[in-house]
Design a protein around this nucleic acid. Structure first.
Lengths: 231, 231
DNA sequence: GATTCAAACGGACAATTGTCCGTTTGAAGT
DNA sequence: ACTTCAAACGGACAATTGTCCGTTTGAATC
């Protein structure tokens, strides 16, 4: 069971590249096959309700899976059948936020009348804002992706959405002569890396940097750095 | 007990900025206070020997802390007194590699006769090579930095060494007019982020990218991006 | 309504991490 | 050599994660 499993989100980002239905995460609809059985659907809801309650009252890190099961009134088998690990519970709880984020991004990044690099700068700001708002859940998701799940972070649909968005913007920027040529696949990951949740929280909380300082520095480094030289 | 505790390494990097003794990690010498008691020193060695043996025969992820203790012939109390968690065992085992790495870097980055940005490009290549060589231990260290230890990754002396090196190079590049002005503190983290072990392994193994492709793309993005425009 | 069975259920169980605490010991001072 | 005690020792114990498996149930079919 993948971390980002469940709900489908219609994404129409960047000239059709992501225009097909793409599973993101969350509670609810299924991609294919039959619908969830009624008891299964109720367990899912009860688990997520209980988890949301416990997380907001005591903090994500302080709540164990057993505790979630107990509060939801379901056994361990049921809990782990629905959500393979705590990261999946957190991913499901993020569903609504991700949906809003991807819609907001889709609206603006779809337009081709605006500079691609400007849109990329705006996108990085939005992503920072998203991380800021959802830091506890994102942190727990990161924590749960260790050992055999180490690469899961980068294979899930949400990260792929981010990467496809950045790739598409870079592609357009290069095609229109706004940015110099580059290895788009590889650079897309590199552009996203400085906003990984671990580093972001460290800079914000331990180094005491303002959010605007971080996004400004990234814009200057990456966006201005990519821009074709004015000679 | 910090992840990077123990051994001292003499670092003379970049015009004296890191010239004082700086604790990095490892087995052996202590920074201050009395020496380790003989039984404690022997426990440490036995633990590290056993861990090294088990790790190389079965893989880091497949070995538990209890197993290490049993193989080393020490109790759990002793094991956890020496190394607060598995990440610290891995850090200690990395000691020798880190020492060689920092010496190699120190030799070249100390010289001011070479372009700072060229040195930065070389440094990123060395760092990628280091990650490649030590991927299993680095991965396990990353995994162990979760929950309450989420920021530990960025506070440990090894990461600080990396950041100081990058900062110093950026500072010199800006001072000499080779790079345009920028927020050095913030950009140093951003420059290092694309080489974090999780992403690096994903690109190498899952995306099938060659090491040279990754470092080339980073050089073009970051180094060329920072370079002052030729007008 | 009865039959059927894949899916869901729950709770015991195994494995791992990390802590606690009563006992032992190295080494410094007398 | 004897005393002293901070530090180290080991192993039981608590907490958490994740799996297994016998039992139950929803819903499609007859």
């Amino acid at each position: 069971m993948s971390v980002w499993q469940g709900l489908l989100v219609k994404t129409e980002v960047v000239s059709g590249i992501l225009s097909r239905e793409m599973p993101i995460l969350g509670e609810g609809a299924f991609g294919e096959g039959r619908e969830e059985r009624r008891d299964a659907a109720e367990s899912r809801r009860r688990i997520l309700d209980a988890a949301g309650e416990l997380f907001s009252s005591r903090g994500v890190d302080e709540v164990s899976m057993h505790e979630i099961g107990r509060a939801a009134g379901v056994g361990q088998g049921t809990l782990y059948r629905r959500f393979g690990h705590k990261g999946e519970v957190c991913s499901a709880l993020l569903g609504e936020s991700v949906r809003r984020f991807s819609e907001r991004v889709g609206e603006r990044v779809g337009r081709e009348d605006e500079s691609a690099l400007d849109q990329l700068g705006w996108f990085l700001g939005e992503l920072a804002e998203f991380s800021e708002q959802n830091a506890p859940l994102l942190g727990a998701i990161r924590d749960s992706a260790g050992g055999g799940r180490r690469v899961e972070m980068y294979r899930n649909p949400f990260y792929r959405l981010l990467r496809e968005t950045v790739s598409a913007l870079l592609r357009r920027a290069v095609a229109q002569g706004e940015a110099r040529p580059l290895d788009i696949e590889c650079v897309a990951d590199a552009v996203l890396a400085p906003l990984n949740i671990g580093l972001y929280l460290f800079q914000r909380q331990e180094m005491g940097m303002e959010a605007a300082r971080i996004t400004d520095a990234l814009s200057r480094l990456l966006i201005d750095g990519l821009r074709t030289r004015v000679e």
